[in-house]
Design a protein around this nucleic acid. Sequence first.
DNA 1: GCGAGAGTGGACCTTCCGGTCCAGTATTCG
DNA 2: CGAATACTGGACCGGAAGGTCCACTCTCGC
Lengths: 201, 201
Amino acid sequence: MRDRRAQIIESATSLINRRGYQQTSVEDVIKDAGLCGKAHFYHYFKSKEELGHAVLNRQFETFAERGLAVLRDPMLDPLERLNVFIDTVVESHAEQGCQGTPCIGGFTVEMAEENESFRARVEALFERWAEHIESLLWEVRPRMRDGFDGARMARFVIATLEGALLMSRVKREISVMEGIAEDLKRFIGLHVQEGAMSHRA
Amino acid sequence: MRDRRAQIIESATSLINRRGYQQTSVEDVIKDAGLCGKAHFYHYFKSKEELGHAVLNRQFETFAERGLAVLRDPMLDPLERLNVFIDTVVESHAEQGCQGTPCIGGFTVEMAEENESFRARVEALFERWAEHIESLLWEVRPRMRDGFDGARMARFVIATLEGALLMSRVKREISVMEGIAEDLKRFIGLHVQEGAMSHRA
DNA sequence: GCGAGAGTGGACCTTCCGGTCCAGTATTCG
DNA sequence: CGAATACTGGACCGGAAGGTCCACTCTCGC
């Protein structure tokens, strides 16, 4: 069964999200996943590092499915999609009591610092995320003001979201993040040409 | 002599900035500070945690002196001060090879996660920072558009800077951060009323 | 000169943790 | 059946790290 492996990754992800990578011992994961001895764990993973990569991969995938999917939803106006995406990030963070890291952020940075191969992967995650937003913004380029730089804006959006995630995590409170998200959406909206609003209210 | 103690804090700050709190052992600090045995270290600090608080305090103070001072410089137009401040954050991050955390960010969040008393302190640091920006924005309120919310904007600025710091740290590259900082300044500028520009070019 | 605090040097304890090894049982599938 | 694979349980190892203890020297102010 690969169920077990998946379950270990699940447990590890949740624990690492809450306590960080270093603060999560293999033993903790074993306990949480309901395994017995270490042998069982090392039957599936050759090291804690391998588990770390698996967790990062999982973040990668979940994020790609849930988060990034909305960025490509053909039913919505691109800019609207971006707004929905931002709201989604805020909401999922709120759902997890300002602790989980629905996309990147938080613990991933700790991991990036720990180990070069982790770092590369986190960077790739950032890049992939940026590219999604970038291509979305490319779609709406004709509607934007002159000099609009989608690549830059994509990074700006990500940085702001990450920072907001971080702040509300430290503060253990979501309201700050909500305000920031609103302002961020407003900022994006300011780049739309007058009279070139999307087809929504 | 309190020199020694200060020197230990100095070493610890630098190490923690580079490698994180958990990744920095007391032994590392001892070596870096040029102490001899552990006894020497524990002569000044009763625990690693106490050292951690001292480091946080130092960050607090250095940041207050260098970073926040510019926010109150009476010689500059308030909005200009904010721009200078943003540039300063970018520059000092660049100087440290995208690794140091000139103000908060990075390792402080790791510490916040580690220990509740650390968390409270980091939160206080955030709050203090926000208040400085807030009061600066209060000064220029008459020049701003209707509905301008200084408190919100202050948090927005901080979140964006923190996120940018984080991204460029993972990427080990400053250019992304520079772009974000520019956009951030531009965003702030967009809230100024037409015809109410500051007295600079 | 004497006592306190600074500094030196290292042995040592304990706990935690990643990782190994092993011995055995349950399950499943050719 | 028989062999691989999944699972159980626990002993164990080696190293890192926080922290204690101790015996000793140096230096400075009273």
